[in-house]
């Protein structure tokens, strides 16, 4: 009762990174609140799944293992989560802000008439005073998120309704093992008691999901391009530099929207958050929503033909110039000096 739950996502029998990141955050929140950390895993063939979760400090793993649950489907997954939460009454529920969490989260919160905050960038514990109602609240979850296209940051609270629910994007929280030998408990749910036949009315006919080939989140060097790169052809220059220096290519939302790069390369509040040791920003003006996703980079180089680009304010090195001239020079002099 009154614990923290993370609804975990799996991919080919592996707990996804965003879930492990949330368990890491959940562990520290649980320590602060002096409560337990619990996980819910729904799927098929989940023998031993708990072993992936214990090292992150998970005290209890609830498992709904059934062949009908092999792929995520809104209705049966919602039914299981809602029923379990009615029984267990968690105070906090966290989910990844993926297509899974953003489909399931609102459905579950609506069924429980509880509040949900999407895409949080920070979660903290704090108090609240409602002066008008003369009420004091302690140990609430502060759900901190950008709003308004990233121009402001709002702190959202759910004073009265439980659970307090939040989704967080991949890469925003850091994943860290709590204790390799941590021991939790596994409880298997009797799935037939949680779902009805009616929950399976939506049929998955076809599915083509590829495992991600792009790995910008864990790249130590990123060459990222913005709308200012100008074309898909110019983006090839970024790829050439990236290949030369062993980096991954990233992109701003504007560049992705313009079709210069794929969605899986998007960095920022609506994409992935990255913390490489070197971030080379090419033709990126530096909208807040982008900066929020890369400001923790150890070193930032900005290449922009506008010396007044906002990103220059947070850069360590600023090169004012045309990237079609600068990038080939970088490639040339890297090669020359590493021979």
């Amino acid at each position: 009762m009154n614990n923290i739950f993370v609804i975990c996502e799996t991919e080919n029998g592996k707990i996804s990174d965003v879930s492990l990141e949330l368990l890491t955050k959940g562990r520290s929140l649980a320590n602060e609140l002096k409560c337990q950390l619990e996980a819910l895993v729904i799927g098929d063939h989940l023998a031993d799944i708990e072993k992936q979760l214990y090292p992150y400090g998970t005290d209890m793993v609830w498992v709904a293992d059934d062949s009908r649950l092999v792929f995520y489907s809104t209705l049966p997954y919602t039914a299981i989560a809602v029923q379990l939460f009615k029984e267990q009454k968690p105070q906090i529920v966290l989910l990844g802000a993926s297509s899974f969490g953003r489909d399931l989260g609102p459905r579950v919160s609506s069924a429980l008439a509880s509040g949900l905050t999407a895409d949080c960038t920070s979660l903290e514990i704090g108090d609240h005073e409602d002066k008008r109602a003369g009420k004091q609240y302690t140990h609430l979850l502060y759900q901190i998120r950008p709003a308004f296209g990233g121009n402001i940051v709002a702190t959202i609270i759910n004073p009265d309704k439980r659970p307090q629910m939040a989704t967080v994007r991949e890469g925003v929280m850091k994943k860290a093992i709590h204790n390799e030998n941590y021991k939790g408990k596994r409880t298997d749910l009797d799935v037939s008691k949680y779902v009805k036949d009616d929950d399976f009315v939506v049929k998955i006919i076809e599915r083509h999901i590829e495992s991600s080939k792009v790995n910008i989140k864990n790249a130590s060097i990123i060459v990222a391009g913005g709308y200012g790169v100008g074309s898909k052809e110019n983006f090839d220059l970024l790829a050439q530099l990236a290949e030369t220096i062993g980096a991954e290519v990233g992109a701003s939302r504007a560049a992705v929207d313009a079709g210069f790069a794929g969605h899986d390369r998007q960095i920022g509040q609506t994409g992935v958050t990255v913390r490489p040791k070197l971030y080379i920003a090419c033709g990126i003006s530096g909208q807040i929503q982008h900066i929020a996703g890369m400001q923790d980079s150890a070193m930032i180089i900005s290449i922009n033909n506008d010396p007044g680009a906002p990103i220059n304010k947070i850069a360590d090195y600023v090169i004012t110039g045309d990237l079609t001239e600068v990038l080939p020079k970088m490639i040339k002099y890297y090669k020359k000096n590493t021979k």
Partner: peptide
């Protein structure tokens, strides 16, 4: 169920760039 507790403008720490 959700209430806005606080709104802040985003301010980034400016650095001295070379």
């Amino acid at each position: 169920p959700t209430k806005v507790k606080k709104i802040e403008n985003i301010v980034f720490q400016a650095k001295e760039a070379r």
